[in-house]
Design a protein around this nucleic acid. Structure first.
Lengths: 148, 148
DNA sequence: TATTGTTATACTCTATAACTATA
DNA sequence: TATAGTTATAGAGTATAACAATA
């Protein structure tokens, strides 16, 4: 099926500009719907990375989060103090330290996702069936654009 | 025209979850495509607010950016030192101070937007015509979701 | 007396430099 | 000798409390 016939051809630049604004606005709105203000953005990001990738070393976390190793040590320390991560020695390299999520962190992440999604789900439920179907087709495109 | 018939019905919750992840990922990717690392996020946000709303008082800026007045005073000071904003007295209320963008700030904002959009436009150009048309229809929905 | 904005001070977060342990 | 991680110290950024000026 083709949607191109239904729409005037829009240049990539105009579309990119509109998409950028819309995406940033929605992301900003989503950020305000946090489950808790107890954790900083960096701490949340580290928890998210560990959830996505499994156990990571301090160095890997620093690289993923674009932070220097000493800063990541501090973040990991704070998360460890909060009981959200644990350190364990690397199997093959005694210099490295692997960081893992605790059960408490997993449920915190689940709860956070549930609440934030719940807000968005309310908004999505307000859309028409056609609009929801359209959005469902567009989401994979957002992922493709982001992963380049 | 209807897209609902083309798609299995997806619950609002599932769609919201997918949309949330896709939007956050793209927003994160867009954030890395800054025109400069000279300004902090707070400083950029203030410039953006002034661009959108025109001259605002220090108090209004603090409320918009969810920051305490003393912090906003500091941010405005730094932007003023950089020649990006100027202070002027409020017309009716002698206590208030209105902050305006300078010409330099306006061109900086334009340049920032151009470069960031340029990156996204490259990715968008890789899409098919159908995909671009689909995206063009979806973007207004993002705005509507964000504005609630 | 209340409100707007600023100044004084303390706390948090991150970075650079120096140090320890392992490869 | 190089690498992973930590500790020590310094530089931003923001918050609370106190102050000055205006309504």
């Amino acid at each position: 099926m083709s949607y191109a016939n239904d729409m005037p051809t829009q240049s990539s630049t105009d579309l990119a500009s509109d998409l950028r604004l819309g995406c940033m606005r929605l992301a900003r709105r989503l950020r305000t719907e946090r489950v808790s203000d107890d954790l900083t953005l960096s701490q949340w990001a580290v928890l998210g990375s560990l959830e996505r990738h499994g156990g990571l070393t301090v160095g890997e976390l620093a690289r993923v989060e674009r932070v220097k190793p000493p800063s990541m040590t501090r973040i990991v320390n704070s998360l460890a103090d909060a009981g959200l991560v644990v350190r364990r020695p690397h199997a093959a390299d005694g210099r490295q330290v692997v960081v893992d999520l605790t059960e408490e962190a997993l449920s915190l992440l689940t709860e956070d996702r549930r609440r934030r999604t719940a807000w968005l789900a309310l908004q999505v439920a307000e859309l028409t069936d056609d609009e929801r179907a359209l959005l469902a087709r567009a989401v994979p495109l957002l992922d493709r654009l982001a992963s380049t």
